[in-house]
Structure formats: structure tokens, C-alpha cells
Amino acid sequence: MLTQAKEVELREFARQIRIHTIRQIGLRGFGHIGGCMSIADLLSVLYGDQLKHDPKDPQWAERDWLVCSKGHAGPAIYAALALRGFFPMEWLETLNQPGTNLPSHCDRKKTPGIDMTTGSLGQGLSIACGVAQAHLLNGKSNTIYCIMGDGESQEGQNWEAVIYAAQQRLGNLILFVDDNQAQIDGYVRQIGQMESYADKFRSFHWDVADVDGHDLSAMHDAILRAKSITGVPSAIVLHTVKGQGCTFALRSWCHHMAVSKEDMEEALRALNA
């Protein structure tokens, strides 16, 4: 259980992540706002509590890893990383500007703290499996986290990796499925109905939890539980709202959208209220 004080701290961290994500995208005028907002609370729990990291040494050998397979959620991670001190806050104003270190999709060669390059959907979990396996082979106890989008789960490679992770008993791997129910062209149920993620992962012999992806305490507890389970990989299905906490995104189809100055200011006012 999170203490009340820690929960307050993480709630504030999540608010800051949202503010700085909306600012990045708002200043640029367009971006993947919806899927950034849906994982903002998860990022707060990870970078505010559970994910071992050192902003002064992004390559620290003892760190936990985050492979964000839905690479278009980069801006939300950049906000978390900047707030934690991986790079100056001013960098956030360079999102998608020529020569930036903060491209729309995660790039480990450009951004301090980004552990893996992702963008062509469906590839992150395989890489996370390799990272997890290497740590196990080296006798290390680092936890390897991966975030997969629900639309992204339609890519077949994910399920190759699901088989592999179970077969290799990658107990240090924790996968979050961001079940925000929407993809670019419509609702996931209209395009490629996935039914129950929990049932799917269970059938592949994964440990599974289903939690509200905006409940900080529930996510915290689910991560602790997953860490305590050895010998099998864990999937934590996050039931989320695409665009959560962002006024203009919540009233729009928000996977990727144009964002006006007025939109940005309205959303920031609401978050600052």
C-alpha cells in the first residue's frame, strides 16, 4: 500500500507529467496526446517510486529498464525524465524541432534515460525479453518493464514474445498493457477485438493482474506483487482512458491531433486549478 503522503506525492508528479506533456505537444502544435495521457499515472508510479534509476547516470548497471513499445508515448516519458533531472526542463520545448533530442518516438541514441528505441509497433516486448534474459543470465536482479498499447497488441510479434517470455521464465519482466480502447482509426473493439487480455496472458502461463490504470495505489500494489512472483513473467493490464486528464483530448478523437494555443492553455488551467 502506498502511504497517504507518497500517494499525494505521486499524484502531484502525475499532474506535473501531464502539464509538461501537454506543454510539449501544445508548443509544437500537434502530437500523440491521447496515449501519453493514458500512461501518465503509470509513469508517476514508475519514475516516482518503483523504477530504480539514477538521473546522473542513465546507463547505471543497477537500474531498472523501461521499454515503451508504444514509442509514440515518448513525450510523456520525456516529461517524467526531465522532471527527474535526466536533462534540462528547457529541452521539453524542443519536441520534434529540427535537431532535437526529443523525437516523437522514443530513441535511445538521442535521449538520456530512454532505454530503447521504438516506434514501429509491436517490437518492444521482444527487445524487453532480450534485456530481461541478459540480466537473468548475468545473475542480476534488475526489473525490466515494458509498456504495450492495446491497439499495438494486434501486431503478431507481440505474441511471439509472449510465448518466448514464458518459455524462458523471464520472471524479471513486467509488461503493462495500456488498455485505453482506442487506436488511430477507431475503437479497438471495432477494428481488432482483443477480448480479455488477462485470459490471453494466463493461457500462456503469465502472471496477470487487472487494475485501474489511473489508480496509483492499485498500480503500485500490482507492481509489488508482480515483483514478488519469480519464474514467470507478469502482465499488468491497465484499464485507462485515452486522453485522461487533458480537457481537449477528452472531447476529441485524440490518438494524434492538432493542438491550438487555446487548447493548451485551457488544459493547463484545468490541471492547475
Binding site: V67, S126, G130, V131, A134, G156, Q157, I163, Y164
Partner: peptide
Amino acid sequence: CGIQEANMVGVACGLSAVGK
């Protein structure tokens, strides 16, 4: 890895990121 070449390449990339 089993009959899953795409995953095999991804796993290899992850392994190499940790020095394998």
C-alpha cells in the same frame, strides 16, 4: 526461440543492449 524470426531478432537486440 521457436519459429518466430521477428522475435528472435528483437530478443537479440535486447541481449546486445546489455553486452551480450
